[in-house]
Simulated assay, not measured.
Amino acid sequence: MSNIPPFKGMGKKALPFLKALGFHQDRDWFKENKALYESEVKVPLGDLIEHVSARMEAEGLPLRGTRKTSLYRVNRDVRFSKNKDPYNTHASALLTRTGTKKDQGFAYVHMSNERSFVATGFYGLASAELAAMRAAIVANHAKLQTMLDGFQTQGLAFDFSESLKRNPRGFEKLDDEALQKLVRLKHHHFVREMDNKDITTPKIADALLELTHITLPFLEFGWAAIDPVREEEALKNAT
């Protein structure tokens, strides 16, 4: 463990800064306080990701990240949003197999005054990938249900709030109610809520590691479903 970068927690002023940023959605204010953002939010978040990435490698988990590739920017993309506030009032980062934020099958950390949590799974899959995930769920329902039942004993379950009202295309004739619930999901991920007092401690790193260990079987299930689709798409783009 001696070669693993240390992580003591986010800065004590991280959440107060993000709260103040919500009141001061102003580029001049942010410029004046950028050093505080760097020292209390960005640098500790980078430390967290590189600490967790190193521990994942040591513990045989396939997800990776760096402070350069994994952190989401504080600047908001306002091009297609009615909300033109220039800055996010949360801090977040993503670890994936490739170490980039464009990959699927992730471990994610999110911190804000309103809500802090860690998450794993698949979110916003492309349509062909989502269809492949749904087909895998139908084909392997018994195996998946056993897995999900095990997660349930540890307080983890899918969030069904973002679900279709009807069966998706290709699954119209599916009449098993349990399967219907699973294939109607738009996203397949698990969330563990964090107490905000714990983000300034190493507990947030431990929680992200623990959640990834628990849900790795589902990440592997999802990768087995979507990787052939991604490989086929990559071949098409190469020709």
Rank of each mutant, 00 (worst) to 15 (best):
N3F: 01
P6V: 10
F7G: 15
K8S: 15
M10I: 01
G11T: 06
G11F: 12
K13E: 13
L21M: 07
D26P: 04
L36Y: 05
E38F: 00
K42Y: 11
P44E: 08
D47R: 01
L48K: 02
R55F: 13
M56P: 12
A58R: 08
L61M: 14
L63P: 04
Y72S: 00
N75G: 05
P86R: 02
S92P: 04
A93S: 09
T96P: 08
R97C: 08
G99T: 06
K101E: 01
K102Y: 11
D103Y: 02
F106I: 15
E114S: 15
F117R: 04
V118N: 08
Y123M: 12
A126V: 12
A128K: 15
L130R: 15
L130P: 05
A132Q: 02
M133I: 10
M133Q: 07
M133L: 13
A139H: 11
K143V: 06
T146S: 15
F151D: 01
A157N: 02
D159F: 10
D159M: 04
F160H: 04
S163P: 15
K165I: 07
N167F: 13
P168M: 06
F171A: 03
K181E: 13
R184M: 14
N196W: 11
N196T: 02
K197Q: 09
P202F: 03
K203R: 03
D206W: 04
L216D: 10
P217E: 01
P217T: 09
F221R: 02
F221L: 02
A225M: 07
D227W: 06
P228S: 09
E232A: 15
K236L: 11
